[in-house]
Amino acid sequence: MKKTMHVGLTVLMAAFVLAGCSSVPLDTKVPVETRTPTALGSGAGGANPSGAGQSGVTSVDLTKGGANVGLGKVVYFDFDSFVLKDEYRPLVDSFAKSLTADRKKKVVVEGHTDERGGREYNLALGQKRAESVTKALALLGAADAQIEAVSFGKERPAAQGSDEAAWAKNRRAELVYR
């Protein structure tokens, strides 16, 4: 009974968390959600007897919310490069046309890198790739408010593997309508 309530609470909290995120206006503070401290069971398989004492950590579970992964159009980049290749101009043109035709439309450009190197530095490299696409969209008439460049760095590879074939598939930017 207690356990059911607890799971229910966790799901509810996860829902609050997700709701809180999607309704957050940019550039403002967000409210804090608080919950009753409750010790969850051990996560990593270590011994975690009942008494929480000074060692208690409360778990937050976001996995119940479901991921929102849109499938977008993809632009690939050369190694260590941020240059939008000519072969992708038609794709970017078509996105720009659609954005200028409907000012309510929005596109998020997600930059990605291959697996080599540090996570944060790759996040910045992916951001640079995404921005090279949003800059092209802006030049073609898309409004700033319609486009956002974000990065996943090396965290969301399109292809697994540690060879040039996989790396080439992962050096990319994805254009996703939101």
Binding site: L40, G43, A44, N48, S55, V57, V60, L62, T63, F152
Partner: peptide, 13 residues
């Protein structure tokens, strides 16, 4: 004695 602080379907870094 590992305990979970956050579970997510998306990356955490």
């Amino acid at each position: 004695g590992g305990q979970v602080a956050l579970n997510s379907a998306e990356p955490i870094i």
